[in-house]
Simulated assay, not measured.
Amino acid sequence: MPVPVTIPPELWAEDDPTGATLLWLREDGAAVGAGDPIAELLVEKVTLELEAPASGRLRIRTAPDAVVHRGDLVALID
């Protein structure tokens, strides 16, 4: 069963509606391990890493440079 990769709500302030720009560090279909950095989130002037929640193949569901928000589904790991 695929494991969802979502934008964790604790990464930035709840009252910040602007979202973040998503930059992928891995390509679609890449093998990833749990805890591997798979993307960067650019929130205002801060860069945060998004880690893989599980090991498997990364299936990207969000375009590079997309603006994402807390809780958004951005990928799956098979």
Rank of each mutant, 00 (worst) to 15 (best):
M1Y: 06
P2A: 12
V3N: 06
P4D: 06
P4R: 04
V5T: 04
T6R: 14
T6N: 11
T6F: 03
T6V: 12
P8V: 15
P8N: 14
P8R: 15
P8H: 15
P9H: 08
P9A: 04
E10C: 00
L11K: 13
W12R: 04
A13I: 04
A13F: 07
A13L: 06
D15E: 14
D15G: 10
D16R: 08
D16K: 08
D16F: 12
D16H: 08
P17D: 12
P17W: 04
T18M: 14
T18N: 12
T18A: 08
T18Q: 13
T18V: 09
G19F: 09
G19L: 03
G19N: 06
A20S: 05
T21S: 11
T21E: 14
L22G: 13
L22C: 10
L23K: 06
L23C: 08
W24Q: 04
W24D: 04
W24I: 13
L25M: 10
R26A: 15
E27Q: 08
G29I: 03
G29M: 03
A30K: 00
V32R: 01
V32G: 01
G33L: 15
G33H: 11
G35F: 14
D36E: 10
D36I: 05
D36M: 01
D36P: 05
P37F: 00
P37N: 02
P37V: 03
I38C: 02
I38T: 05
I38D: 00
A39W: 03
E40N: 05
E40I: 07
L41S: 13
L41P: 06
L42Q: 14
V43R: 02
V43T: 10
E44V: 04
E44P: 08
K45C: 11
V46I: 08
V46R: 01
V46P: 00
T47D: 04
T47L: 07
T47Q: 06
E49R: 09
E49G: 15
L50M: 10
L50G: 10
E51S: 05
A52P: 10
P53K: 02
P53G: 02
A54D: 15
A54C: 13
A54Q: 12
S55D: 15
S55W: 15
G56H: 00
G56W: 07
L58V: 13
L58M: 12
L58E: 01
L58W: 01
R59Y: 13
R59T: 10
I60V: 13
R61C: 10
T62D: 02
T62A: 14
T62C: 13
A63P: 09
A63K: 08
P64Y: 00
P64M: 00
P64Q: 00
D65R: 01
D65E: 09
D65G: 07
A66Y: 06
A66M: 07
V67Y: 04
V68G: 15
V68W: 04
H69R: 02
H69V: 11
H69A: 11
R70T: 12
R70M: 07
G71R: 06
D72Q: 03
D72L: 03
L73R: 08
L73W: 11
L73I: 11
L73H: 11
V74D: 07
I77P: 09
I77A: 15
I77S: 14
I77K: 05
D78N: 08
